[in-house]
C-alpha cells in the first residue's frame, strides 16, 4: 500500500516527459499503422495493436492495449464490427475521452468506403455476419486511396499546425499509389477469372478487384472453424467446379488449406493479408506487390 504514492509519482514523472511526436496514433490493424506512417511521417508516433499473424476478430483488450489507448490522440480502426470484441473495452477502460466513438480521435476506415457483401438478412444462424458489410476492405487499392484521403483530413483536424505537412505527404502518397495501382492492374490482368478457394471472406475485396472467382470457402460459415464435413462437401463441389488455387491469410491455420490442396491437387498460396504478413509485405506497396506476385506464380 505504501508503494502507491511512489508508483503515482513515477507515473506522473513519466507523464511529464515531453511527447516525442505531435500525434499519438493507435492503429487497430497493421494496414492502418502503415498508412498512418505514410501520411504522418515523423510527426506521428504509431503503434499497431495487432500483427498480421493475429486474427483481427479475436483480439483481447490486453492491459498493454489499454495503456496505449490511454495516451492515444487518434485510434485508426477498420470499424464495421470487425473489432467489436475488443475496441469497445479499450474505449471504456482507458479513461481517454478523445478516442470514444463519434469523437474525432476515433477513425473508422469503413466510414470512408462503400462496403461489399452487405447481408440482406442479419441472423446468427448465418455465422458471425457483419451487418454493415465485409470489413476486410484494405485489399482493394481504391479503398486505400479513399481511406488515405479521409484519414489525412482527420489528422489535419487533430493536429492543425501540421495540416499542410500531412496533406503534402498524402498528395505524394496518392500519386505513387495511383501509379502503382495502374501497374498492379496491368500485372494482375492474367488473374481475371482465376477460380480460387478462400479461407474466410477476408480476401473478397481482392477477389473482386482482380476479377477472380471465389469458388468456395474453407469456413463453413463466417467465423466458424473448418470442419471435416464441410471440407469433404467442398471437395465434391470442387470436382464439379474446379479451383486453380487455395489461398489463405498469414493468420489462418494452414491445415485445412493443405487438406483441400492435397486432395484437389491444387497449390496453396499463402497471402500476407496485411502489412507484415510476409517478409516482402513491409509496407502497403510491398503488401500488394507480394500478393500479386504470389498469385501470379500460380497462373504461370
Amino acid at each position: 500500500m505504501k508503494y502507491i504514492p511512489a508508483i503515482i509519482a513515477v507515473s506522473l514523472w513519466l507523464a511529464a516527459q515531453p511527447a516525442l511526436a505531435a500525434l499519438n496514433i493507435l492503429a487497430c490493424e497493421p494496414e492502418w499503422a502503415a498508412l498512418a506512417k505514410e501520411l504522418g511521417g515523423d510527426k506521428v508516433s504509431v503503434y499497431a495493436a495487432t500483427t498480421a499473424l493475429q486474427d483481427p476478430h479475436r483480439v483481447e483488450a490486453r492491459p498493454s492495449l489499454i495503456a496505449r489507448a490511454r495516451s492515444a490522440d487518434l485510434m485508426v480502426c477498420t470499424g464495421a464490427e470487425l473489432e467489436v470484441g475488443w475496441v469497445p473495452l479499450l474505449q471504456s477502460q482507458a479513461g481517454n475521452p478523445k478516442i470514444q466513438p463519434n469523437q474525432k480521435g476515433y477513425f473508422e476506415a469503413a466510414m470512408a468506403v462503400p462496403l461489399i457483401d452487405v447481408p440482406t438478412r442479419v441472423d446468427r444462424s448465418l455465422g458471425d455476419v457483419h451487418p454493415a458489410g465485409n470489413p476486410h476492405l484494405h485489399l482493394n487499392p481504391a479503398n486505400i486511396a479513399k481511406v488515405a484521403s479521409a484519414l489525412t483530413e482527420r489528422m489535419a483536424q487533430l493536429d492543425a499546425p501540421e495540416a499542410a505537412y500531412y496533406r503534402d505527404r498524402a498528395k505524394s502518397f496518392l500519386e505513387r499509389w495511383q501509379t502503382a495501382t495502374v501497374r498492379w492492374e496491368q500485372e494482375g490482368a492474367p488473374l481475371k477469372g482465376l477460380p480460387l478457394v478462400v479461407y474466410h471472406k477476408d480476401l473478397s475485396y481482392l477477389v473482386r478487384w482482380l476479377g477472380m472467382r471465389e469458388v468456395g470457402a474453407l469456413e463453413p460459415k463466417p467465423g466458424l472453424p473448418p470442419t471435416t464435413a464441410h471440407l469433404s462437401e467442398l471437395l465434391s463441389q470442387l470436382a464439379k467446379d474446379p479451383a486453380k488455387v487455395v489461398v489463405r491469410s498469414a493468420y489462418n491455420d494452414p491445415r485445412a488449406a493443405a487438406f483441400i490442396a492435397e486432395r484437389a491437387r491444387i497449390p496453396v498460396v499463402l497471402l500476407p493479408y496485411t502489412v507484415g504478413g510476409t517478409e516482402r509485405a513491409k509496407d502497403l506497396f510491398g503488401l500488394y506487390d507480394d500478393t500479386l506476385s504470389r498469385l501470379l506464380a500460380v497462373t504461370k
Partner: peptide, 13 residues
C-alpha cells in the same frame, strides 16, 4: 474512481 497511468505499460489504480 479509476485512473489509468500514461505509461507505456499498464498501470491502473
Amino acid at each position: 474512481l479509476r485512473w489509468v497511468a500514461p505509461t507505456p505499460f499498464f498501470l491502473e489504480v
